[in-house]
Design a protein around this nucleic acid. Structure first.
Ligand code: MN
Ligand code: MN
Ligand code: MN
Ligand code: MN
Lengths: 218, 218
DNA sequence: TTTTTATTTTAGGCAAAGCTAAATAATATT
DNA sequence: AATATTATTTAGCTTTGCCTAAAATAAAAA
């Protein structure tokens, strides 16, 4: 359980996000990290020497088992901290991600365990994303896009994609939150928008909004 | 309010610890940081270019007003996090310092403010050290060493020095905690130890223990 | 199957932050 | 006042992590 730099951990996380345990191209990784390809070539070479990834030049980079383990551990911390920030400190769900990017690099197994307990052993973070367990197991990824339901379905919002500030602003102004339940009133054959209704009235959700909001059928 | 590296912040903190706003020698700083003098010479040169310190070669390094401001901000974070770890997560007061060393570098004014509120606007950390206010004001440094009291005084423990693991272990085995109250039963003219009594009995505190435990008279 | 284009790697630089060894300045001792 | 000792700085080297420009490789188009 040696210790890694913040940069290393960010590469591991990016690789997991992009490909899980599958190979990822230099270009995709560079884009995600926000660095030039040449920097990425060097970085993954370093990770390779630590056996966190397998590198095949010109072909791609792939997390090793140990790399995947580490990625999940970081993701666990990220999502636990997001949960803390929202549930305990009252941050809005749209503002916690950058903070969690910092907090996810704090090194202490004990801290993670205690935080987990303090938060009531949560399975999902404030956006509905699954929080990896201590042993690396992943709780289910909940829900289907709102566009996947049909008229008459009763649904509950269980997850939202991190689709940027404007998306979260839109959720806010439309008063849409995790846990809200709606009835699917209609679906537009023209623009793939969906009409939802609740006790407080009804409204239309654009195709783009639908694609980033996930729900389960009740 | 630009952003600083972890190393820079550690130098600032060390300078504040060693000299406050007074000059500090290269050697002392090197010792505190745990680096060689030559590394320190370079580091403070960098800090000087950012106007966080004034450097007089061969003479010493001194925090600027901005440097002091930053030092206090970091100390505030350090002590708030320690309070969080003990009060909310149930860590022992002897184990939180290294964790706070990491957490103190998280950058977010908002997080600090919310944490402060969440903790009930504390004035002192779990060791009784004052937590700098938002504006840099310092709450009082509480108490006098236990050796300073005389027979018959009723006292309350309000602060302990960070004197290492063994010291904290000793406090634990003797069941001494912040807030405990005692009567000074006797003071030894031979070895400067002090006899304290409470409802649960009486015991002798060595000179070295006394020097690191601070109390107020009731 | 060439040729062109896009992707990736190499080569060479730079800044931060550490190190060792050598030079220099400041103190202390005779 | 001259010398020896200690403290500090300089010089030169290392690793991490980023960059640009050029070379090499792979993929796509002709
Ligand atoms: Mn996030
Ligand atoms: Mn990160
Ligand atoms: Mn501390
Ligand atoms: Mn620190």
């Amino acid at each position: 359980m040696k210790t890694h730099t913040e940069s290393e951990e960010n590469y591991i996380k990016a690789l997991y996000h992009l490909g899980g345990d599958q190979p990822v191209s230099n270009g995709d990784l560079a884009q995600r990290i926000g660095a030039k390809g040449s920097s990425v070539t060097q970085a993954v070479k370093r990770l390779g020497q630590k056996d966190l990834v397998d590198v095949v030049p010109y072909k791609g980079v792939q997390l090793t088992a140990e790399g995947v383990r580490l990625a999940k551990a970081i993701l666990r911390k990220h999502r636990l901290w997001e949960t803390f920030l929202v549930d305990k400190l009252g941050f809005g769900w749209e503002e916690v991600h950058p903070l969690a990017e910092q907090l996810e690099h704090i090194q202490s197994e004990e801290l993670v365990d205690r935080l987990f307990q303090f938060l009531g052993s949560p399975k999902h973070d404030p956006h509905g994303d699954p929080i990896p367990e201590r042993d690396g197991q992943m709780p289910p990824v909940l829900g289907q896009p709102v566009g996947a339901f049909v008229t008459g379905n009763e649904i509950r919002i269980v997850r939202v994609e991190d689709a940027g500030t404007e998306f979260f602003d839109q959720l806010d102004t439309m008063n849409i939150n995790l846990g809200n339940t709606y009835m699917v009133q209609a679906t537009s054959a023209f623009d793939a928008s969906v009409q939802l209704s609740s006790t407080s009235g009804s409204f239309w959700l654009s195709k783009d909004m639908c694609a980033n909001i996930y729900a389960i059928r009740l």
